[in-house]
Amino acid sequence: MNTVDTKQIEKKSSPILSLGFSPCPNDTFIFDALVHGRVECGYAFKERLEDVETLNRMALSATLDVSKVSYHLLGHILGDYLLLRSGGALGRGCGPLLVAREKLDAASLAGKRIALPGRYTTAALLLRLFNPSLSDFVYLPFDKIMAAVADGSVAAGVIIHESRFTYQGHGLQKILDLGQWWEEETGHPIPLGGIAARRDLGRETLLALEQAIAASVERAFKYPAEARPYIRAHSQEMSDEVCDAHIGLYVNDFSRGLGSEGEAAVRLLLGRAEAAGIIPPLREPLLI
């Protein structure tokens, strides 16, 4: 007589939620345990790995149940989504960099063409907050920006992700650290990307997701070798050293949970974006 594995039956019958995040090492590190069933929340997940601006645009049409999004984009989607407290990228010393071929004065960029990694990225928001007079932007995939700056297609570019570790190898110079500017301007850490979940999933599901993502982060910290194959599968062009540096920069205690400090930073960023007319008025609750 065959023995029935009730845990397998429960797993197979779990409702499936769509989950979007980037193939960058920080996201695959965070979500590995969740998508592979090493933490439980009563749901299975169909993951969608895309660059952050693709995820932002998918969230604008409410395509995914749960998704990593830029904090800039969050201000545009609060009618459909709210922010989960776990799983995001927020910290100090990790902001976008403005780079150029030659040493430029950041204050003299007016009239120059600047490449940005997407209209709705936090990188784009920070540059607009830094200098509202700038307007000549070209939007490129984040991994195409360094080449565009290096070949003179644009005067400067804002780089994110692993480009922070490799731009000097492309003959580029740092003009401005937008994260450092934000920290000095406000005293707060910089909110880069957070996890948005559809409001219509309901409070019980949203709380379960928030807790499960936090547990996935904890497991990744406790057993980092478990996540390594998943990370490597989606970062084949990066060395282990760059992967580790990437994770070390973007995954921290704020990824476990925003806490009061993280929440204050998010509210300040969105408040400044609203005051500048960059995002619509904030009328919906931000968090569960």
Score class of each variant (00 low, 15 high):
268 L>V: 03
166 T>N: 07
246 H>S: 14
211 Q>C: 10
101 R>K: 13
44 A>R: 02
186 T>L: 01
209 L>T: 04
76 H>A: 09
191 P>M: 08
104 L>M: 13
236 Q>Y: 07
211 Q>T: 08
25 P>Q: 03
38 R>F: 07
97 L>K: 08
207 L>W: 13
70 S>F: 09
169 G>W: 10
25 P>F: 03
88 G>T: 05
167 Y>E: 00
265 A>P: 08
277 G>D: 02
31 F>V: 11
279 I>Q: 00
26 N>D: 13
53 E>V: 07
269 L>E: 09
171 G>V: 09
89 A>R: 04
149 V>G: 04
141 P>Q: 06
193 G>C: 09
273 A>S: 03
129 L>N: 05
41 C>K: 11
125 L>Q: 03
175 I>P: 07
285 P>M: 08
59 A>Q: 11
269 L>S: 08
155 A>M: 12
259 G>Q: 13
214 A>F: 10
11 K>I: 01
132 P>L: 06
202 G>E: 15
77 I>E: 09
253 D>W: 02
44 A>H: 04
17 L>D: 03
280 P>D: 05
235 S>L: 01
275 A>L: 10
5 D>H: 02
225 A>P: 12
187 G>S: 02
200 D>L: 14
131 N>A: 14
148 A>G: 04
95 G>F: 02
258 L>E: 07
92 R>E: 14
164 R>M: 10
179 G>I: 02
238 M>Y: 10
62 A>C: 07
204 E>A: 00
130 F>H: 13
175 I>T: 09
144 K>Q: 15
91 G>P: 04
34 L>Q: 00
278 I>H: 09
263 E>C: 13
205 T>W: 07
237 E>S: 06
269 L>V: 04
255 S>T: 14
230 Y>E: 12
85 R>L: 11
27 D>L: 08
9 I>S: 02
87 G>V: 01
244 D>S: 15
51 D>N: 12
100 A>I: 06
106 A>K: 07
249 L>D: 05
204 E>H: 05
226 E>L: 12
147 A>S: 14
